[in-house]
Nucleic acid binder design. Structure first.
Lengths: 222, 222
DNA sequence: TTGTCGTTTGTCAGTGGCTGTCACTAGCCT
DNA sequence: AGGCTAGTGACAGCCACTGACAAACGACAA
């Protein structure tokens, strides 16, 4: 956090700072472009560095590893969602707040992403993550961390202790599970639009209740 | 599949086969022992191979990578659980079958694991996985694959198409989420016994309902 | 027993991700 | 202007992992 204080967030970035940000953004964009065109495994770090004309060592000074650059945008999106959740009114029930936060997050995704990469590139990258085992693994682990953060957030909201009451973690885990199924369904479907995943999210959240009802044989599916 | 037929599963393993199994088991045990004593990252493949007195190349002929050997026992346990689930009577409601299969799985965990490694070593390894980021990531991804298998299994049981009806995948994802929270809670708790995780499993499954109820502020806690 | 065959294994060489070190350059500050 | 420090490139090295080939060894039959 650069600006913990009050107003003026950008007194003067300084030349060094600007140069750094430009290098980082360039690396990120180059990496994503290479990943989505020739695949994650078939892209080497040397290639990415060369595309931006820096040394391999410099790449590793900006990103902890190949994985991190691949998941950087996803990270931004999750932060966007958590921010959205923090903004929900305290009166809302936990699951209601979660639901509204995600749907709101999709509606405003542009604000969070477009400044660094085009949304379309983000969506392509999302699908690549789902279909690349090592990326999917890393993504799932990071999601688990985000879930822990959200669980603490909700527990605080409701005045509970996350270590003695299992309900916050359980609820968040369940919610996260639904989000994951949604994302997977979207990425293997046909409609790769933003509206599609937004609609899927709403639909699947509505289906959780029925899915947990014992008898699936009466009245059914999508 | 060596023995697809009916009875006699072990006519005569043959010397070669026995030697192979012995090498594999030795590698597995040595790896787990090293991992749990000095940590996963601080253990090299060369070390493991040397402990069994084979070449590094041979290690990679038995295991696809360092990750695989670390998760091998976990894999056996999950297979054990899926087997247990397949044995549930068709009349049971899906979630009921899942619940009974897991609890049953814990009760009979010895049969599935003890022949290869002591159960105690498995439990230690379980905790190591939870606390080692790259292992946790790989574990979560494999769990996702198992969940897909289970979803198809349940869908078949109930006569549904897993691709048009979201409920099987949703239910399994929710169930898996609860199991993960359970495992995490167990591994960070104090009682590392088998009974402890068994009891936690039952308790957390009972808490899912309440966790999804909107109002946590009335009556709660562990 | 001996010879042949196919499998298992070791050796060697190489790739790619990632890290430590060190010297150099270029912003920044007084 | 000149010193301080952050950012960088060049180089060397570790470790996970793979392909290729030859040697060792078990299986089986003559």
């Amino acid at each position: 956090m650069e600006t913990a204080g009050t107003a003026e967030a950008v007194p003067r970035p300084g030349l060094r700072e600007r140069k750094k940000r430009r290098t980082r953004d360039a690396l990120l964009r180059a990496a994503l472009e290479l990943f989505t065109t020739q695949g994650y495994e078939r892209t080497t770090v040397d290639e990415i560095a060369e595309a931006v004309d820096v040394s391999q060592r410099t790449f590793f000074r900006y990103f902890a590893g190949k994985e991190e650059v691949a998941l950087a945008v996803q990270e931004m999106v999750e932060e966007h969602f958590v921010r959205s959740l923090r903004g929900r009114p305290p009166g809302e029930a936990p699951l209601e707040a979660l639901r509204r936060a995600v749907l709101d997050g999709w509606d405003t995704i542009n604000e969070a992403v477009a400044s660094v990469v085009p949304v379309e590139l983000y969506l392509r990258m999302f699908r690549l993550i789902e279909s690349t085992p090592v990326l999917l693994a890393a993504h799932l682990r990071r999601s688990a961390e985000t879930e822990e953060e959200i669980a603490r957030l909700l527990a605080a909201r409701e005045g509970l202790d996350v270590d003695t009451d299992p309900r916050p973690r359980l609820a968040v885990a369940v919610f996260g599970a639904v989000m994951r199924v949604t994302g997977r369904q979207w990425s293997t479907g046909e409609d790769f639009s933003l509206e599609a995943i937004r609609a899927l999210t709403a639909a699947y959240l509505d289906q959780v209740g029925p899915a947990l009802t014992g008898n699936w044989r009466t009245s059914g599916g999508s």
